[in-house]
Amino acid sequence: MSGIRKYQSLRSLVTRLRDDLNNVELVLLYAYNRTGKTRLSMAFKDEGKRKTKKNPQGVADTLYFNAFTEDLFTWENDLDGDVLRHLQINPDSSLFNGLKELALDQPIASYLSRYAEFDFDIDYEAWKVRFRKDGADNIKISRGEQNIFIWCLFMAICERMLDGHVSYQSFKYLYIDDPISSLDDNNAISVACDLAKLLRRAASRVDGNGTPAPIKIIFSSHHALFFNVMCNEIGRAKEGEAKVANKRYFLHRPDSSGVYTLRGTEDTPYFHHVATLAELKRAAHPRSGKLYTFHFNALRSIMEKTAAFFGHADVSFCIKALDNEEDRALYNRALNLLSHGAYSIYDPTPMGDDNQDLFRRLLDDFLAKFQFALPELADKPVGAAPTATPSAAPSP
């Protein structure tokens, strides 16, 4: 596994990623929410349209999907009549330069039918999208359904870009950041598999003369399942297809400063689970840490993945492996009761004192038993105990 490398600004990090793409077709980034993934994607895009000797006109070289892409679509809810509801497309974005000529209804519908059960109609003159389902017209779809529709439209545009449509010929890079907000795990797997197929096509693209003309790609996500499916789909050899050269990183921002770190995870795509444990250890520090209710959810998730790594069906394997028999029943009840609430990282609730003590005991016993080699992702807080790094640490 590669060592940790620090970057003092987004621009220096962008330079590193663009340098990487001179040697590989794809870079995959795993990062927690609030790390700065969206800002990084915009910095990458902005770097590509800077006026330079090679690009005197400042022509954009990156087609991107991120939170700003989703903001190009806004609802008109017809507050007066409450009947003619539609999604309004912002036509000023270069993303839609070829939309009228492309007639994307069929390719969008092809993707959408895999994930949702509603239909749509696009008015290319008025830049409106109306939705229908079960005989009802002009319906209001959910935020999750809206996001998946936007994603399907973007995928359809990407297909036309790979086909060499004139509106998208200037793009050399594809940057995709967190495309699956609001999706459940089943749809996450389906979307990841479809995306991996598209990215394979981009990486092996050739021009009309048969000369290699790949579209280089950055993909970033905070979603552990999605990231692992992408790693597996990209890393797996496909019959009749060349292997996609790629690099995988854990992207981290240790504190509120502008410093970012990259740690290579090419050999261990599950490294981010270990990184999550390091974050939990930091949050549990009695003086400098801060524990919230959602941390029990995170710990249970890591214990479930550890059990799966060792070939066991559920988290009870980890509980039974702990040395303190008296605490096993208590830990089991705590995990069952405290890790199944609707605790959100976006609306954190501080953990009570008793539960904090219980969490620290459970975390310490778990780490002592399984002896993970926790990464040095940030400077340790003052007074932090040294982390053991045994040579035979499992890497779930």
Rank of each mutant, 00 (worst) to 15 (best):
M161W: 09
A196M: 07
G135N: 00
Y270G: 09
Y168E: 00
V229D: 03
I150M: 05
L262Y: 13
S142P: 12
V244Q: 02
S220Y: 12
N228F: 09
R248N: 11
A203V: 14
A213C: 13
I139V: 02
F250W: 14
I141C: 00
L183I: 07
C193L: 15
A245H: 04
T261K: 06
A188K: 15
I215W: 08
K140P: 02
E266L: 15
A202K: 03
T276D: 06
H252C: 08
T261S: 12
G144H: 04
S256A: 11
G240N: 01
K140M: 12
I139A: 01
R205Y: 14
M155F: 10
S221A: 09
E241H: 10
V259P: 09
A196G: 12
F226I: 05
V166P: 08
T211R: 08
F149E: 03
A156F: 10
E233R: 08
F149W: 11
D267T: 13
F226P: 06
K197L: 15
F149L: 01
D177N: 05
A245S: 11
K247M: 06
N232C: 05
F149K: 02
L262E: 12
L251F: 09
A224W: 15
G235D: 02
Y175D: 08
P254I: 05
H273E: 07
A188C: 14
L262N: 04
E241I: 01
N186I: 14
A188V: 15
D255E: 07
M230W: 03
H252F: 15
C193V: 15
I148P: 02
A278S: 07
A213F: 13
N186C: 04
A242F: 10
K247S: 06
E159Y: 13
C152E: 01
S170W: 06
L162T: 03
V274G: 04
H165R: 06
C158F: 08
K197C: 06
F250M: 07
F227D: 00
F250Q: 04
T265F: 10
G144P: 04
S142Y: 12
E145M: 07
N186H: 14
F271L: 05
N138D: 02
L277S: 00
L183A: 12
G144Y: 08
V191W: 13
K172C: 06
I189A: 06
N186S: 09
V244H: 05
P269V: 13
Y260T: 09
A237H: 13
D163H: 09
R201T: 15
K197N: 13
S167L: 00
A196L: 04
N246W: 14
P179G: 03
D134E: 15
K172F: 01
A242S: 10
N138V: 02
K172S: 06
I148L: 02
A203N: 06
M230N: 01
N147C: 05
P269G: 08
G144M: 07
V191D: 11
I141G: 00
I180H: 03
N187S: 11
L195R: 10
P269Y: 14
R200W: 07
R253I: 10
I176W: 05
F219S: 02
D255Q: 06
S182Y: 15
V244A: 01
F271S: 03
E145Q: 09
L277K: 00
R143Q: 12
K197M: 11
K247H: 11
H165S: 06
R132A: 11
I176P: 01
F171S: 02
N232Y: 08
S257V: 04
M161R: 10
L251P: 02
Y260S: 03
A196V: 11
R200Q: 09
P212M: 02
V206C: 07
